[in-house]
Write a protein that binds this DNA or RNA. Structure first.
Length: 499
RNA sequence: AGGGCGUUGGGCAAGUGGUUAAGCCAAUGGAUUCUCAUUCCAUGAUCGCGGGUUCAAUUCCCGUACGCCCUCCCA
Protein backbone atom coordinates (compact mmCIF):
# COMPACT_ATOMS: atom_id res chain seq x y z
CA UNK A 1 0.00 0.00 0.00
CA UNK A 2 2.88 2.28 0.68
CA UNK A 3 4.21 1.58 -2.74
CA UNK A 4 4.78 4.68 -4.77
CA UNK A 5 2.83 4.60 -7.96
CA UNK A 6 5.65 5.09 -10.37
CA UNK A 7 3.38 5.19 -13.35
CA UNK A 8 1.48 8.24 -12.32
CA UNK A 9 3.84 10.08 -10.07
CA UNK A 10 7.59 10.28 -9.97
CA UNK A 11 9.03 11.08 -6.57
CA UNK A 12 10.44 14.60 -6.47
CA UNK A 13 12.02 16.00 -3.35
CA UNK A 14 14.21 18.96 -2.66
CA UNK A 15 16.78 20.37 -0.35
CA UNK A 16 16.12 24.08 -0.01
CA UNK A 17 18.90 25.89 1.81
CA UNK A 18 18.98 29.58 2.38
CA UNK A 19 22.44 30.88 1.63
CA UNK A 20 22.71 32.53 5.02
CA UNK A 21 25.60 30.37 6.01
CA UNK A 22 27.83 27.53 5.07
CA UNK A 23 26.83 23.91 4.97
CA UNK A 24 26.58 22.54 8.47
CA UNK A 25 25.65 19.24 10.05
CA UNK A 26 21.94 19.97 10.18
CA UNK A 27 21.75 21.15 6.57
CA UNK A 28 23.76 18.22 5.41
CA UNK A 29 21.49 15.78 7.14
CA UNK A 30 18.38 17.25 5.56
CA UNK A 31 20.06 17.10 2.19
CA UNK A 32 21.25 13.55 2.69
CA UNK A 33 17.85 12.25 3.75
CA UNK A 34 16.15 13.87 0.81
CA UNK A 35 18.81 12.51 -1.49
CA UNK A 36 18.47 9.02 -0.06
CA UNK A 37 14.72 9.20 -0.24
CA UNK A 38 14.78 10.25 -3.90
CA UNK A 39 17.36 7.72 -4.99
CA UNK A 40 15.70 4.90 -3.12
CA UNK A 41 12.47 5.62 -4.95
CA UNK A 42 14.19 6.20 -8.26
CA UNK A 43 12.98 9.80 -8.16
CA UNK A 44 14.51 13.22 -8.55
CA UNK A 45 16.51 15.23 -6.07
CA UNK A 46 16.37 18.99 -6.53
CA UNK A 47 18.24 21.80 -4.84
CA UNK A 48 16.49 25.12 -4.61
CA UNK A 49 18.10 28.22 -3.19
CA UNK A 50 15.85 30.15 -0.82
CA UNK A 51 17.51 33.50 -0.84
CA UNK A 52 14.56 35.75 -0.05
CA UNK A 53 16.16 37.14 3.08
CA UNK A 54 18.66 39.37 1.40
CA UNK A 55 19.82 40.88 4.63
CA UNK A 56 21.02 37.57 5.94
CA UNK A 57 22.46 36.12 2.81
CA UNK A 58 26.20 35.76 3.05
CA UNK A 59 28.69 35.82 0.26
CA UNK A 60 29.77 32.40 -0.78
CA UNK A 61 26.95 30.74 1.12
CA UNK A 62 25.40 29.22 -1.96
CA UNK A 63 28.72 28.00 -3.35
CA UNK A 64 29.66 26.50 -0.03
CA UNK A 65 26.39 24.63 0.16
CA UNK A 66 26.81 23.05 -3.24
CA UNK A 67 30.52 22.47 -2.97
CA UNK A 68 30.36 20.54 0.26
CA UNK A 69 27.25 18.64 -0.70
CA UNK A 70 29.22 17.45 -3.66
CA UNK A 71 32.17 16.65 -1.45
CA UNK A 72 29.90 14.50 0.69
CA UNK A 73 29.04 12.60 -2.43
CA UNK A 74 25.58 13.93 -3.19
CA UNK A 75 24.46 14.61 -6.72
CA UNK A 76 21.33 16.33 -7.83
CA UNK A 77 19.11 16.38 -10.86
CA UNK A 78 18.00 19.98 -10.98
CA UNK A 79 19.42 23.14 -9.51
CA UNK A 80 21.06 26.47 -10.15
CA UNK A 81 24.16 24.84 -11.58
CA UNK A 82 22.72 22.02 -13.65
CA UNK A 83 19.46 23.63 -14.69
CA UNK A 84 16.18 21.75 -15.09
CA UNK A 85 12.76 22.29 -16.57
CA UNK A 86 11.21 23.83 -13.45
CA UNK A 87 13.65 26.69 -12.99
CA UNK A 88 14.81 29.17 -12.11
CA UNK A 89 16.00 27.50 -8.92
CA UNK A 90 16.90 30.65 -7.06
CA UNK A 91 13.90 32.30 -5.44
CA UNK A 92 15.03 35.85 -6.07
CA UNK A 93 14.84 35.01 -9.75
CA UNK A 94 11.22 33.94 -9.40
CA UNK A 95 9.77 37.19 -8.14
CA UNK A 96 7.54 37.69 -11.16
CA UNK A 97 6.07 34.25 -10.63
CA UNK A 98 5.22 34.95 -7.00
CA UNK A 99 3.67 38.25 -7.85
CA UNK A 100 1.10 36.60 -10.07
CA UNK A 101 0.02 34.38 -7.21
CA UNK A 102 -0.15 36.94 -4.44
CA UNK A 103 -2.07 39.22 -6.76
CA UNK A 104 -4.54 36.40 -7.22
CA UNK A 105 -4.97 36.09 -3.48
CA UNK A 106 -5.44 39.83 -3.16
CA UNK A 107 -8.03 39.85 -5.93
CA UNK A 108 -9.99 37.09 -4.27
CA UNK A 109 -9.85 38.83 -0.90
CA UNK A 110 -7.87 35.93 0.55
CA UNK A 111 -5.05 38.30 1.37
CA UNK A 112 -4.92 41.94 2.32
CA UNK A 113 -2.51 44.79 2.71
CA UNK A 114 -1.23 45.55 6.16
CA UNK A 115 0.14 49.00 6.90
CA UNK A 116 1.50 48.33 10.35
CA UNK A 117 5.14 49.24 10.74
CA UNK A 118 7.65 46.83 12.22
CA UNK A 119 7.88 49.09 15.25
CA UNK A 120 4.15 49.02 15.84
CA UNK A 121 4.09 45.27 15.52
CA UNK A 122 6.95 44.89 17.87
CA UNK A 123 5.29 47.11 20.45
CA UNK A 124 2.10 45.11 20.05
CA UNK A 125 3.93 41.89 20.61
CA UNK A 126 5.71 43.15 23.66
CA UNK A 127 2.51 44.45 25.17
CA UNK A 128 0.88 41.06 24.64
CA UNK A 129 3.78 39.27 26.24
CA UNK A 130 3.82 41.63 29.16
CA UNK A 131 0.17 41.01 29.89
CA UNK A 132 0.57 37.30 29.52
CA UNK A 133 -1.30 37.01 26.27
CA UNK A 134 -0.30 34.89 23.32
CA UNK A 135 1.81 36.99 21.01
CA UNK A 136 0.51 37.28 17.49
CA UNK A 137 -0.78 39.68 14.93
CA UNK A 138 -4.02 41.29 16.06
CA UNK A 139 -5.68 41.47 12.66
CA UNK A 140 -5.70 45.25 12.88
CA UNK A 141 -5.58 45.83 9.11
CA UNK A 142 -7.96 43.04 8.22
CA UNK A 143 -10.85 45.32 7.44
CA UNK A 144 -9.40 48.66 6.49
CA UNK A 145 -11.76 51.15 4.85
CA UNK A 146 -10.84 52.92 1.66
CA UNK A 147 -10.27 56.10 3.67
CA UNK A 148 -7.90 54.45 6.07
CA UNK A 149 -5.95 52.97 3.22
CA UNK A 150 -5.78 56.33 1.47
CA UNK A 151 -4.64 57.87 4.74
CA UNK A 152 -1.84 55.34 5.23
CA UNK A 153 -0.77 55.67 1.63
CA UNK A 154 -0.70 59.42 2.03
CA UNK A 155 1.57 58.96 5.01
CA UNK A 156 3.90 57.17 2.67
CA UNK A 157 3.52 53.82 4.39
CA UNK A 158 4.41 50.80 2.38
CA UNK A 159 2.23 47.80 3.05
CA UNK A 160 3.07 44.18 3.52
CA UNK A 161 0.61 41.59 2.33
CA UNK A 162 -0.93 39.23 4.81
CA UNK A 163 -2.75 36.00 4.23
CA UNK A 164 -6.21 35.96 5.73
CA UNK A 165 -6.43 32.87 7.91
CA UNK A 166 -9.92 31.38 7.69
CA UNK A 167 -11.76 30.76 10.97
CA UNK A 168 -12.54 27.41 12.50
CA UNK A 169 -10.73 25.20 10.09
CA UNK A 170 -9.26 21.91 11.05
CA UNK A 171 -5.91 21.29 9.47
CA UNK A 172 -4.78 17.70 9.51
CA UNK A 173 -2.10 15.80 7.75
CA UNK A 174 -0.22 12.55 8.03
CA UNK A 175 3.40 13.19 8.70
CA UNK A 176 5.80 10.48 7.58
CA UNK A 177 7.69 10.59 10.83
CA UNK A 178 5.35 12.11 13.40
CA UNK A 179 2.14 10.45 12.33
CA UNK A 180 -1.24 12.14 12.23
CA UNK A 181 -1.04 15.81 13.18
CA UNK A 182 -3.93 18.13 13.89
CA UNK A 183 -4.08 21.91 14.04
CA UNK A 184 -6.79 24.51 14.38
CA UNK A 185 -6.74 27.56 12.15
CA UNK A 186 -7.82 29.68 15.11
CA UNK A 187 -4.36 29.19 16.56
CA UNK A 188 -2.73 30.68 13.50
CA UNK A 189 -2.65 34.41 12.95
CA UNK A 190 -2.63 36.22 9.62
CA UNK A 191 0.95 36.06 8.50
CA UNK A 192 2.96 38.13 6.09
CA UNK A 193 3.36 36.59 2.67
CA UNK A 194 4.95 39.56 0.93
CA UNK A 195 7.32 41.91 2.68
CA UNK A 196 7.37 45.64 2.27
CA UNK A 197 10.08 45.32 -0.34
CA UNK A 198 7.91 43.13 -2.53
CA UNK A 199 9.80 39.94 -1.76
CA UNK A 200 7.73 37.01 -0.58
CA UNK A 201 8.37 35.36 2.76
CA UNK A 202 9.45 31.79 3.20
CA UNK A 203 6.01 30.45 4.00
CA UNK A 204 4.60 31.83 0.77
CA UNK A 205 7.42 31.16 -1.65
CA UNK A 206 7.84 27.61 -0.44
CA UNK A 207 4.23 26.78 -1.29
CA UNK A 208 4.37 28.30 -4.74
CA UNK A 209 7.66 26.62 -5.54
CA UNK A 210 6.83 23.22 -4.14
CA UNK A 211 3.68 23.21 -6.22
CA UNK A 212 5.20 24.55 -9.41
CA UNK A 213 8.21 22.31 -9.10
CA UNK A 214 5.92 19.34 -8.56
CA UNK A 215 7.34 18.23 -5.25
CA UNK A 216 5.74 15.02 -4.06
CA UNK A 217 7.32 14.92 -0.60
CA UNK A 218 8.80 17.46 1.72
CA UNK A 219 11.32 16.16 4.22
CA UNK A 220 12.57 18.89 6.48
CA UNK A 221 13.48 19.67 10.07
CA UNK A 222 10.81 19.59 12.72
CA UNK A 223 11.22 23.28 13.38
CA UNK A 224 8.91 23.56 10.40
CA UNK A 225 6.04 21.62 11.91
CA UNK A 226 4.26 24.75 13.05
CA UNK A 227 4.74 26.32 9.64
CA UNK A 228 2.99 23.45 7.95
CA UNK A 229 -0.59 24.46 8.80
CA UNK A 230 0.07 27.88 7.32
CA UNK A 231 1.38 26.32 4.18
CA UNK A 232 -1.47 23.86 3.92
CA UNK A 233 -3.93 26.72 4.21
CA UNK A 234 -2.17 28.38 1.29
CA UNK A 235 -2.32 25.20 -0.74
CA UNK A 236 -6.04 25.16 -0.06
CA UNK A 237 -6.46 28.78 -1.03
CA UNK A 238 -5.00 27.98 -4.42
CA UNK A 239 -6.83 24.71 -4.71
CA UNK A 240 -3.61 22.75 -4.88
CA UNK A 241 -2.74 19.39 -3.46
CA UNK A 242 -0.05 19.62 -0.80
CA UNK A 243 2.92 17.29 -0.87
CA UNK A 244 3.39 14.58 1.73
CA UNK A 245 5.25 16.01 4.69
CA UNK A 246 7.86 14.39 6.87
CA UNK A 247 9.43 16.29 9.75
CA UNK A 248 12.76 15.05 10.92
CA UNK A 249 13.94 15.55 14.45
CA UNK A 250 16.38 18.22 15.30
CA UNK A 251 20.01 17.65 16.02
CA UNK A 252 20.84 19.10 19.38
CA UNK A 253 24.01 20.01 21.21
CA UNK A 254 25.17 18.89 24.64
CA UNK A 255 22.71 21.31 26.16
CA UNK A 256 19.86 19.80 24.22
CA UNK A 257 19.46 22.94 22.18
CA UNK A 258 18.91 22.94 18.45
CA UNK A 259 22.20 23.21 16.63
CA UNK A 260 22.46 26.76 15.45
CA UNK A 261 25.01 28.31 13.21
CA UNK A 262 26.35 30.43 16.02
CA UNK A 263 26.75 27.57 18.41
CA UNK A 264 30.39 27.30 19.33
CA UNK A 265 30.11 24.31 21.59
CA UNK A 266 30.45 22.03 18.64
CA UNK A 267 32.30 22.01 15.35
CA UNK A 268 29.49 21.99 12.88
CA UNK A 269 30.48 23.12 9.45
CA UNK A 270 31.24 20.40 6.96
CA UNK A 271 34.21 22.35 5.71
CA UNK A 272 35.78 22.24 9.16
CA UNK A 273 35.48 18.49 9.26
CA UNK A 274 37.04 18.27 5.85
CA UNK A 275 39.89 20.43 7.03
CA UNK A 276 40.43 18.32 10.12
CA UNK A 277 40.80 15.30 7.92
CA UNK A 278 37.46 13.57 8.20
CA UNK A 279 36.49 11.44 5.25
CA UNK A 280 33.32 12.28 3.33
CA UNK A 281 32.16 8.67 3.40
CA UNK A 282 32.46 8.57 7.17
CA UNK A 283 30.68 11.86 7.65
CA UNK A 284 27.93 10.75 5.33
CA UNK A 285 27.61 7.49 7.21
CA UNK A 286 27.60 9.16 10.59
CA UNK A 287 25.10 11.86 9.70
CA UNK A 288 22.75 9.33 8.19
CA UNK A 289 22.64 7.52 11.51
CA UNK A 290 21.59 10.70 13.27
CA UNK A 291 17.85 10.39 13.57
CA UNK A 292 17.57 7.33 11.40
CA UNK A 293 18.40 3.72 11.98
CA UNK A 294 18.83 0.81 9.62
CA UNK A 295 17.09 -2.47 10.12
CA UNK A 296 19.84 -4.80 11.27
CA UNK A 297 22.79 -4.35 13.57
CA UNK A 298 25.23 -3.14 10.98
CA UNK A 299 26.20 0.52 11.11
CA UNK A 300 28.84 0.97 8.47
CA UNK A 301 27.40 1.32 5.01
CA UNK A 302 28.35 2.54 1.59
CA UNK A 303 26.24 5.15 -0.10
CA UNK A 304 24.68 2.56 -2.36
CA UNK A 305 23.75 0.35 0.54
CA UNK A 306 22.10 3.31 2.23
CA UNK A 307 20.16 4.09 -0.91
CA UNK A 308 19.02 0.52 -1.15
CA UNK A 309 17.72 0.25 2.35
CA UNK A 310 16.65 3.78 3.14
CA UNK A 311 13.16 3.78 4.57
CA UNK A 312 11.66 7.04 5.75
CA UNK A 313 9.42 5.13 8.11
CA UNK A 314 12.44 4.37 10.23
CA UNK A 315 13.15 8.04 10.87
CA UNK A 316 13.31 8.65 14.58
CA UNK A 317 10.85 10.85 16.44
CA UNK A 318 13.11 12.17 19.15
CA UNK A 319 16.01 14.58 18.86
CA UNK A 320 19.51 13.24 18.40
CA UNK A 321 22.51 14.63 20.17
CA UNK A 322 25.62 15.06 18.10
CA UNK A 323 28.15 12.54 19.41
CA UNK A 324 31.61 13.57 18.44
CA UNK A 325 33.34 10.54 19.89
CA UNK A 326 31.28 8.22 17.78
CA UNK A 327 32.03 10.27 14.68
CA UNK A 328 35.72 9.93 15.45
CA UNK A 329 35.38 6.20 15.96
CA UNK A 330 33.50 5.85 12.71
CA UNK A 331 35.99 7.93 10.79
CA UNK A 332 38.68 5.69 12.22
CA UNK A 333 36.88 2.68 10.82
CA UNK A 334 37.06 4.22 7.38
CA UNK A 335 40.68 5.25 7.81
CA UNK A 336 41.65 1.67 8.59
CA UNK A 337 40.27 0.59 5.26
CA UNK A 338 42.16 3.22 3.30
CA UNK A 339 44.81 2.14 0.80
CA UNK A 340 48.33 3.17 1.66
CA UNK A 341 48.23 5.83 -0.98
CA UNK A 342 44.96 7.32 0.21
CA UNK A 343 46.06 7.16 3.79
CA UNK A 344 49.20 9.13 3.04
CA UNK A 345 47.24 11.64 1.00
CA UNK A 346 45.13 12.19 4.08
CA UNK A 347 47.88 12.45 6.67
CA UNK A 348 51.00 13.89 5.07
CA UNK A 349 49.42 17.28 4.34
CA UNK A 350 48.62 17.65 8.03
CA UNK A 351 52.20 16.92 8.96
CA UNK A 352 53.34 19.48 6.44
CA UNK A 353 50.84 21.98 7.69
CA UNK A 354 52.08 21.51 11.24
CA UNK A 355 55.61 22.16 10.09
CA UNK A 356 56.76 18.65 10.93
CA UNK A 357 57.97 17.92 7.43
CA UNK A 358 58.74 20.20 4.48
CA UNK A 359 56.38 20.58 1.60
CA UNK A 360 59.08 19.72 -0.89
CA UNK A 361 60.62 16.44 0.13
CA UNK A 362 63.33 14.26 -1.30
CA UNK A 363 62.30 10.72 -2.12
CA UNK A 364 64.18 9.68 0.98
CA UNK A 365 62.39 12.13 3.25
CA UNK A 366 59.10 11.20 1.80
CA UNK A 367 59.69 7.52 2.38
CA UNK A 368 60.63 8.17 5.95
CA UNK A 369 57.64 10.43 6.64
CA UNK A 370 55.34 7.89 5.04
CA UNK A 371 56.60 5.11 7.23
CA UNK A 372 56.11 7.26 10.30
CA UNK A 373 52.56 8.11 9.28
CA UNK A 374 51.75 4.52 8.42
CA UNK A 375 52.62 3.47 11.94
CA UNK A 376 49.38 5.05 13.10
CA UNK A 377 46.83 3.95 10.55
CA UNK A 378 45.16 1.59 13.03
CA UNK A 379 44.51 4.23 15.60
CA UNK A 380 44.07 7.46 13.69
CA UNK A 381 40.72 9.15 14.22
CA UNK A 382 41.08 11.91 11.68
CA UNK A 383 43.82 13.43 9.56
CA UNK A 384 45.00 16.17 11.87
CA UNK A 385 45.23 13.61 14.64
CA UNK A 386 48.48 12.40 13.10
CA UNK A 387 50.34 15.47 14.26
CA UNK A 388 50.03 14.62 17.94
CA UNK A 389 50.38 10.90 17.48
CA UNK A 390 53.70 10.98 15.67
CA UNK A 391 55.12 13.64 17.92
CA UNK A 392 57.99 11.50 19.20
CA UNK A 393 59.57 11.23 15.77
CA UNK A 394 60.14 14.93 15.66
CA UNK A 395 61.48 15.44 19.12
CA UNK A 396 65.25 15.64 18.88
CA UNK A 397 66.00 16.13 22.56
CA UNK A 398 68.78 14.00 23.93
CA UNK A 399 67.33 13.98 27.39
CA UNK A 400 63.79 14.40 28.44
CA UNK A 401 63.27 17.53 30.47
CA UNK A 402 60.55 16.17 32.64
CA UNK A 403 59.67 12.55 33.22
CA UNK A 404 56.13 11.36 33.76
CA UNK A 405 55.25 9.33 36.79
CA UNK A 406 55.26 6.17 34.74
CA UNK A 407 58.63 6.92 33.22
CA UNK A 408 60.20 7.60 36.58
CA UNK A 409 58.96 4.29 37.83
CA UNK A 410 60.42 2.52 34.83
CA UNK A 411 63.83 4.05 35.31
CA UNK A 412 63.92 3.20 38.99
CA UNK A 413 64.41 -0.47 38.19
CA UNK A 414 67.78 -1.81 39.28
CA UNK A 415 68.12 -3.70 35.98
CA UNK A 416 67.90 -0.54 33.88
CA UNK A 417 71.58 0.19 33.74
CA UNK A 418 72.42 -3.34 32.80
CA UNK A 419 69.87 -3.53 30.05
CA UNK A 420 70.85 -0.25 28.51
CA UNK A 421 74.57 -0.97 28.70
CA UNK A 422 74.25 -4.24 26.88
CA UNK A 423 71.77 -2.92 24.38
CA UNK A 424 73.91 0.10 23.68
CA UNK A 425 76.93 -2.09 23.04
CA UNK A 426 74.98 -4.37 20.75
CA UNK A 427 73.55 -1.52 18.74
CA UNK A 428 76.98 -0.09 18.11
CA UNK A 429 78.00 -3.32 16.47
CA UNK A 430 75.23 -3.04 13.91
CA UNK A 431 76.29 -2.53 10.35
CA UNK A 432 72.79 -1.96 9.11
CA UNK A 433 70.21 0.19 10.90
CA UNK A 434 66.88 -1.47 10.24
CA UNK A 435 64.08 -2.78 12.39
CA UNK A 436 64.95 -6.28 11.20
CA UNK A 437 68.48 -5.87 12.41
CA UNK A 438 67.56 -4.13 15.66
CA UNK A 439 65.02 -6.68 16.82
CA UNK A 440 67.59 -9.50 17.33
CA UNK A 441 69.68 -7.16 19.41
CA UNK A 442 66.87 -6.82 21.88
CA UNK A 443 66.85 -10.58 22.10
CA UNK A 444 70.56 -10.66 22.73
CA UNK A 445 70.09 -8.14 25.50
CA UNK A 446 67.38 -10.30 26.94
CA UNK A 447 69.61 -13.36 27.03
CA UNK A 448 72.53 -11.61 28.51
CA UNK A 449 70.71 -9.63 31.19
CA UNK A 450 68.05 -12.25 31.86
CA UNK A 451 65.49 -9.48 31.74
CA UNK A 452 62.38 -9.72 29.68
CA UNK A 453 59.07 -8.11 28.94
CA UNK A 454 58.32 -4.86 30.63
CA UNK A 455 61.66 -4.70 32.44
CA UNK A 456 63.52 -5.20 29.21
CA UNK A 457 61.58 -3.09 26.77
CA UNK A 458 60.43 -0.15 28.81
CA UNK A 459 63.80 1.25 29.86
CA UNK A 460 64.95 1.05 26.25
CA UNK A 461 61.77 2.68 25.08
CA UNK A 462 61.86 5.53 27.55
CA UNK A 463 65.48 6.42 27.00
CA UNK A 464 65.73 5.76 23.27
CA UNK A 465 62.40 7.18 22.17
CA UNK A 466 61.87 9.68 24.93
CA UNK A 467 58.42 8.40 25.69
CA UNK A 468 56.83 5.52 27.52
CA UNK A 469 54.28 5.11 24.74
CA UNK A 470 54.71 4.51 21.06
CA UNK A 471 54.67 2.04 18.24
CA UNK A 472 56.65 -1.19 18.12
CA UNK A 473 60.13 -0.65 19.41
CA UNK A 474 62.40 -1.93 16.61
CA UNK A 475 60.67 0.06 13.92
CA UNK A 476 60.40 3.11 16.12
CA UNK A 477 64.14 2.97 16.73
CA UNK A 478 64.88 2.57 13.08
CA UNK A 479 62.81 5.58 12.18
CA UNK A 480 64.17 7.74 14.96
CA UNK A 481 67.57 7.06 13.51
CA UNK A 482 70.83 5.60 14.62
CA UNK A 483 72.42 8.84 15.52
CA UNK A 484 69.79 10.09 17.93
CA UNK A 485 69.18 6.72 19.53
CA UNK A 486 72.84 6.16 20.26
CA UNK A 487 73.28 9.67 21.53
CA UNK A 488 70.42 9.24 23.93
CA UNK A 489 71.77 5.96 25.24
CA UNK A 490 75.25 7.34 25.59
CA UNK A 491 74.02 10.41 27.38
CA UNK A 492 72.02 8.39 29.85
CA UNK A 493 74.76 5.89 30.57
CA UNK A 494 77.48 8.45 31.06
CA UNK A 495 75.23 10.39 33.39
CA UNK A 496 74.72 7.22 35.41
CA UNK A 497 78.43 6.63 35.73
CA UNK A 498 79.20 10.01 37.13
CA UNK A 499 76.64 9.45 39.85
C1' A B 1 1.16 32.72 27.48
C1' G B 2 -0.85 29.70 23.23
C1' G B 3 0.01 25.70 19.75
C1' G B 4 3.04 21.54 18.43
C1' C B 5 6.54 17.65 19.18
C1' G B 6 9.40 14.56 22.29
C1' U B 7 11.02 11.42 26.94
C1' U B 8 14.25 3.39 26.52
C1' G B 9 21.53 2.81 30.59
C1' G B 10 26.55 8.87 29.86
C1' G B 11 25.53 9.52 23.95
C1' C B 12 23.01 7.09 19.52
C1' A B 13 19.25 3.57 19.29
C1' A B 14 16.19 -1.41 18.17
C1' G B 15 11.96 -3.49 19.96
C1' U B 16 7.21 -5.93 21.48
C1' G B 17 0.52 -6.33 25.09
C1' G B 18 3.60 -11.65 28.05
C1' U B 19 11.47 -11.32 25.65
C1' U B 20 17.15 -12.75 29.57
C1' A B 21 14.65 -4.97 26.82
C1' A B 22 19.07 -5.94 20.51
C1' G B 23 23.30 -3.46 18.70
C1' C B 24 26.98 0.70 18.25
C1' C B 25 29.99 4.76 20.71
C1' A B 26 31.88 6.23 25.49
C1' A B 27 33.26 4.76 30.51
C1' U B 28 35.06 1.09 33.90
C1' G B 29 37.28 -3.82 34.85
C1' G B 30 39.91 -7.92 32.67
C1' A B 31 42.77 -10.96 28.77
C1' U B 32 46.58 -10.50 24.92
C1' U B 33 50.94 -7.17 24.03
C1' C B 34 57.33 -4.06 25.92
C1' U B 35 53.87 0.71 26.31
C1' C B 36 49.99 3.33 23.75
C1' A B 37 46.84 1.60 20.12
C1' U B 38 44.50 -2.71 18.00
C1' U B 39 41.74 -7.20 19.09
C1' C B 40 38.76 -10.04 22.53
C1' C B 41 35.74 -10.71 27.06
C1' A B 42 32.97 -8.56 31.01
C1' U B 43 30.02 -4.65 33.66
C1' G B 44 25.60 -1.47 33.96
C1' A B 45 18.64 0.67 31.95
C1' U B 46 12.55 -2.27 34.47
C1' C B 47 11.85 1.77 29.45
C1' G B 48 10.43 10.52 32.79
C1' C B 49 6.62 10.29 36.87
C1' G B 50 1.39 9.11 38.60
C1' G B 51 -3.04 6.84 37.60
C1' G B 52 -6.23 3.71 34.53
C1' U B 53 -7.61 -0.46 30.87
C1' U B 54 -5.97 -5.70 30.93
C1' C B 55 -4.90 -12.19 33.42
C1' A B 56 -0.48 -9.24 31.72
C1' A B 57 2.07 -2.58 29.71
C1' U B 58 8.11 -0.11 28.39
C1' U B 59 4.46 -1.16 24.50
C1' C B 60 -2.91 1.18 24.79
C1' C B 61 -5.61 5.55 27.38
C1' C B 62 -5.63 9.86 30.73
C1' G B 63 -3.03 13.20 33.61
C1' U B 64 1.53 15.42 35.19
C1' A B 65 6.76 16.97 35.03
C1' C B 66 10.66 18.21 32.18
C1' G B 67 12.92 19.45 27.47
C1' C B 68 12.70 21.38 22.75
C1' C B 69 10.39 23.87 18.40
C1' C B 70 7.14 27.63 16.48
C1' U B 71 4.17 31.89 17.55
C1' C B 72 9.85 37.33 12.84
C1' C B 73 8.37 42.06 7.03
C1' C B 74 14.24 34.44 9.33
C1' A B 75 14.27 30.23 6.85
Amino acid sequence: MKVVNALTEEVRVRYAPSPTGFLHIGNARTAIFNYLFARHAGGKFIIRIEDTDQKRNVDGGEESQLKFLKWLGLEWDESVDVGGEYGPYRQMERLAIYKKYWQELLDKGLAYKCYCTPEELKAEREAQMASGQTPGYSGKCRHLTAEQIAQYEAEGRKPTIRFRIPDDQKIEFDDIVKGHLTFDSNDVTDFVIVKQNGVPTYNFAVVIDDHLMKMTHVLRGEEHISNTPKQILLFRAFGWKPPVFGHMTLIVNENHKKLSKRDNSIVQFIEQYKNMGFLPEALFNFITLLGWSPKGEEEIFTRDEFIKQFDANRLSKSPAMFDKSKLEWMNGQYIKKLSEEDYLALTLPHMIHAGLIPEEMTAEQRRWASRVALLYQEQLHYGADIVNLCDMFFNKDIEKAELTKGEKKILEGEQVNDVLTVFDRELRSLSEWTAEAIAPKIKVTQKETKQRGWKLYMPIRVIATGSEHGPELPEALELIGRDLVLKRLEHYLSAQQTV
